[in-house]
Design a protein around this nucleic acid. Sequence first.
RNA 1: CGCGGGGUAGAGCAGUUGGCAGCUCGUCGGGCUCAUAACCCGGAGGUCAUUGGUUCGAAUCCAAUCCCCGCAACCA
Length: 510
Amino acid sequence: MKNKFYITTAIAYVNAKAHMGHALEYVLTDTLARYHRLKGDETFFLTGTDEHGVKIFNTATKANIDPQAFVDANAKAFMDLKGLLDLSYDDFIRTTDRKRHWPACQKMWKKLVEADDIYEKEYEGLYCEGCEMFMQPRDLENGQCPIHHKAPTVIREKNYFFRLSKYSAKILELIESDTLKIVPEQRKHEILGIVREGLNDVSFSRPREVLPWGVEVPGDPSQVMYVWCDALTNYISALGYTEESATFKKFWPADLHVIGKDIVRFHAGIWIGMLLSAKVKLPKSILVHGFVTHEGQKMSKSLGNVVDPVELVNRFGTDALRFYFLREIPNGRDGDYTEKLFIERYNSDLAHNLGNLANRVHNLVNKNQILDFEFKTGSEAYRQKVDETWKLYEESMDSHNVHEAVSHVWKLVDFANKNIDLEKPWSLIKTDPDKARSVLCNLLEVIRHISLMVEPFIPQSSGKLRLMLGLPPVASFADEREWGSVTQWHNVGKGVILFPLIEPPKLEAK
RNA sequence: CGCGGGGUAGAGCAGUUGGCAGCUCGUCGGGCUCAUAACCCGGAGGUCAUUGGUUCGAAUCCAAUCCCCGCAACCA
């Protein structure tokens, strides 16, 4: 019996290019998807783009570009990340997809109407023309917009509202009981606090004059769906919610939504409310990640300290960036990026610990012409360490704690480095070749296990490692998870430099 | 008294059924020489924010205080 695993990222708003936060989310999600695939779960990994809204419409028209052409170009930049970050998603959904996405949104809307959860309301708000958005009275300074120093105008408009308040108590219960699991725990507390105060009904549509770029409300061409019913529905529209396709039936509900800490309330609140109302099954859990700061500061255009993930990949490579995110950023918390730390982590963990380990073992095997040998039983101590690592690794990965899983694997790398030093195969070669052979076998075997465990983190490097070992790429854990499951070492390659050292930046560069 | 998170070695962090304070990086000393000036071993470095309490014993439980950071309707 095969388990299924459906995992999603949030869809990216395409009015700007991808930043570190997107990259972090994609890498984290990709790693979990890869893990589940190797584990044998039938896995579906979805990502996509959010392409509607006033902001995008205005940016495009100001630049004299057709909105669709504008989002096409921007969405492409996000799709290009697949290669750059080595992402393994199965599908990419765009909210401007009129064939797949729009009908699903409209079906969702109709379901909400059927449940009597959509009602019409005259909305009155303070609108700042400069900001092009509604403002809350508490945001104003002396009745004026603090940015544009102009009094906002009072605008009245017709909106459809979604009766989210009706589901407030139910949602609270779902989160408290972990029926909808929110990890890490810290984020669960945060959202519980918000839900306990009671969720309010939310505006679900706006007049077409103010929101011309979006999905039409069924039965009322004068109204366009506001972001919620449009964007959140992507998680099911891509699977084929509209026609209740086989894919939809197989993969929904989602096993895991991976999102940033700023949108927890929408996923744990509005999205769940919508599904309850439409009588669609609920996602099982939500994994919340933090933001990426730069030298301890929030990245922002105004501070001019934005780090471009694409540039980092070009400079240091895909796996270097993937590894940094996974190794350095603890579950759910904000992570800091500094170039110094990035290079340090890479040089120390990847180059010196893992890369050098693989290199020295392979060179010992090659130099001493013991390329072709058979693996007997191996050392009990090594076997135990590997088994123990697998257990911890799986525990961490199964609870979506990738950061912890990485650190377990690196303890195994340390173990190997320590033992090669204790057993000194380079001198055993001269005194006791058989013993040397068996030591090297144990080490190769450990490296093989490492190549399996790191595949979800750094797939390219895992592939190179396998090539060195003379083994095919990792296909699944099941085939190779046991100690000693590879018995013949015929094609052990030469030691190559897996991770070339990165020169630390010159001081004057700063 | 809005809600939530946190204050542990130079930096970044672990550490709740209370029991001699740990990890990574950096730093200092030693070892090894198979390897990417890598790897291994050892040392130095902390009044665990403050104050009081419970206890044979508290980073860990309780009370109070100080400080930092998120969130409070549409920026991952």
